[in-house]
Design a protein around this nucleic acid. Structure first.
Lengths: 331, 331
DNA sequence: CTGTTAGCGCGTTCAC
DNA sequence: GTGAACGCGCTAACAG
């Protein structure tokens, strides 16, 4: 382990007290121009930088933030993480990426660690989380909750509009029995997308039918694939599918394909997130684009503001979405 | 900020000295059975856990490891990160994921932070890195280097065999002029894949031709796409393409498709990594599967061993790969 | 303007 | 078997 130079050594080399060095570093004033220069010179010469751990021990928090993500293998989340990390890093924060696998136990353990490690901020990417009891500045993405912590803020894309746009697209293309695949759990972003789905149906004089709402406990490709196979074997009929996420859409696509259903000729299909795979799929899939870069910026900006003591906005911040029409909804 | 209970408070509640509490926690002996029980009980009752920052300040290192990754948006890397993180977490380590964007400056700044933050281990995922001057236990993945740090070990998949298998597949399917797209920089994994490419050619009585080696400064989809467009416009002829990674293969695919080239009828195509998108592509793409789960386990195992003081293995550890034949090489 | 000092929470040496 | 005391590197309160 490489031993690094300490503030004390700097103070000796600069022939001042350790307190003065600290003041210069933190620009706390109460030092002369000359001493400042001298100290800064010694610091530069020795390539010194303060020990974040010692700072953390004193301040009771580190300049690190934890990001809790349900599935780091999902491109949608990595694009979000990328944007968040980039913005936080520029502001001097390092990032713990904690993959929870949608497992409550793992999530709790990560949270515990984050708390012990005194991260100064937390970011939750959409998922089903237990009630958070910590009072660390937090940003929730795509997870509206009624029981909001006092210093938490929420950023979410406009899921209602997204669901609405995807559904409307298929209605306009002639679909009348649109299946919606979504989460069985009370996850706000999925609930909102479903709301948009209903809204579009209503506009077309239709009502949502329970048998056309397919719910999943886990939101992976495989689950969607299995569920769709089940539904098809049961003989349910539909002429459109709005999947709550792109990976669900991919699962539906695969199952339908294997059942000899042609897309878009027999059934229209739309997903959500706009991950790369949808555009390269054998039949490119219509989807809703979420502006991850903008969301990442907002996350960083709001989190940092909250960390600095500003009261977070109570109202969720909504980022617009737009439809990306592709072959799967255009015969 | 939530104030947590300290060791001192535990010692008071248990009516022992703080030193004894420390000894019990670290199982350093020199305490009686009764005191141990009492201390452990108080610890449990108060849900106490040691402050990692204070521990870190004393020990001069934290139980955290940094992972440096060139592109966190690439599924291949996230699968690797997933496996690494999972294994390290089970062993009690938290992980800093540092995205470098293949930018040396950013990488250096991350490294500097990791060093300041006293991570106890470092993992480099394939990329072009400057010489590392720190002596932190390190694992390199897919980045063989001659100038190895004393406590670094290397894990890599069998890239030579991978390149060989991909190329041989196309040769067996009749291709004779196979273009190879690879990195312009001296990145070991790409160099090795190229070596496998040559080896296969040789076996078929062919030699590699310079005009059939296309190099890229940056290894993204867009660069491959642009390069392939350029080559096609120049009129270079070939009947097979071995791309050094799946995203490069996707870029080649797209450019060829837009030039009216049919795959596999006119040109065969193979990639490397086996990311999801290759199997869902309009023409599923043949690729080389890397066993990321196994690699992640090996990374964690070896890193932890090195952290604990064992001398790391000098020889690179090679993980087998296998060919995943798909439509892009089967007419 | 500058220096001395206490203490953040922990592990460890040294007495007893 | 146990406890007092020091120091890891830093910031802030206080004294001058």
């Amino acid at each position: 382990m490489q031993k690094t130079i300490s503030m004390k050594e700097i103070s000796e080399k600069a022939d001042v007290s350790i307190a003065t060095v600290s003041r210069v570093i933190n620009k706390n004033g109460r030092y002369s121009k000359e001493t400042e220069e001298r100290v800064l010179r010694v610091i530069a010469e020795n390539n010194y930088q303060p020990n974040p751990i010692a700072q953390g021990l004193r301040a009771q928090h580190m300049k690190n933030v934890g990001i809790l993500v349900p599935d780091i293998k999902n491109e949608f989340f990595t694009k979000l993480i990328y944007a968040i990390e980039r913005n936080l890093f520029e502001a001097g924060y390092e990032t713990f990426v904690c993959n929870t696998d949608e497992d409550e136990t793992i999530e709790k353990r990560h949270l515990q660690m984050m708390q012990s490690q005194k991260v100064c901020g937390l970011v939750f990417l959409s998922g089903t989380t237990p009630k958070l009891t910590v009072s660390i500045p937090t940003v929730y993405i795509d997870r509206i909750s009624t029981e909001v912590s006092p210093n938490a803020c929420m950023i979410t894309s406009d899921n209602v509009t997204g669901g609405y746009l995807a559904t409307k697209e298929m209605l306009e293309q002639g679909a009348r029995r649109i299946l919606h695949m979504t989460s069985s759990k009370a996850v706000s972003c999925y609930a909102e997308r479903c709301e948009g789905y209903r809204k579009a149906l209503k506009e077309f004089g239709l009502t949502s039918k329970d048998e056309l709402i397919a719910t999943l406990d886990e939101l992976h490709y495989q689950n969607a694939y299995d569920k769709m196979n089940l539904l098809l074997d049961e003989g349910i009929s539909f002429d459109g599918v709005f999947a709550g996420s792109d990976w669900l859409a991919m699962g539906c696509y695969q199952a339908m394909k294997e059942h000899g259903i042609r897309i878009p000729e027999d059934v229209l299909l739309a997903g959500y997130d706009d991950i790369s795979i949808t555009s390269f799929n054998a039949v490119p899939i219509t989807t809703i684009h979420q502006q991850v870069t903008e969301m990442g910026q907002l996350v960083a900006k709001n989190l940092i503001a909250t960390i600095k003591g500003e009261a977070p906005q109570k109202e969720p911040i909504r980022v617009p979405v737009y439809l990306v029409p592709r072959k799967s909804t255009r015969k």
